[in-house]
Amino acid sequence: MIFSIVVQAPPIQCQGAETALRFARALLDAGHSIHRVFFYRDGVHNGSALTCLPQDEVSIPEQWQALAREHKLDLVVCIAAAVRRGLINEHEAGRYKKAHWNLAEQFELSGLGQLVEACIQSDRVVTFGGRS
């Protein structure tokens, strides 16, 4: 089956992002495919390259990156939600005249249309962090 995953949970304050990650791994292990992982609302913080954790804690953004590299996942961060929260790439840094940017590799910024397209293309769409 073709799945898409919507992540609205931020990586530290909520468990939802880690649950989404484990769900994604379970899908792939079970032979399903993932059309897209779409990060919306505070879920955009999953795409930060500047997350710094103590050595004995796992970095959710790095785990998404590793999973994306291994399985060629499409990790899309909602651009409107991201720029409002200070999560930008080099292109947006230029547009908004910011000196720095912080979107991690493997993630891309795009519009909410990518969420709708994911719904059209997928047999199942599963949301994590939708009630926070």
Partner: peptide
Amino acid sequence: DALDAALTCSVFEQ
């Protein structure tokens, strides 16, 4: 955020 998602669905004729 829910309204924005709904409006986008409509733009994509869903």
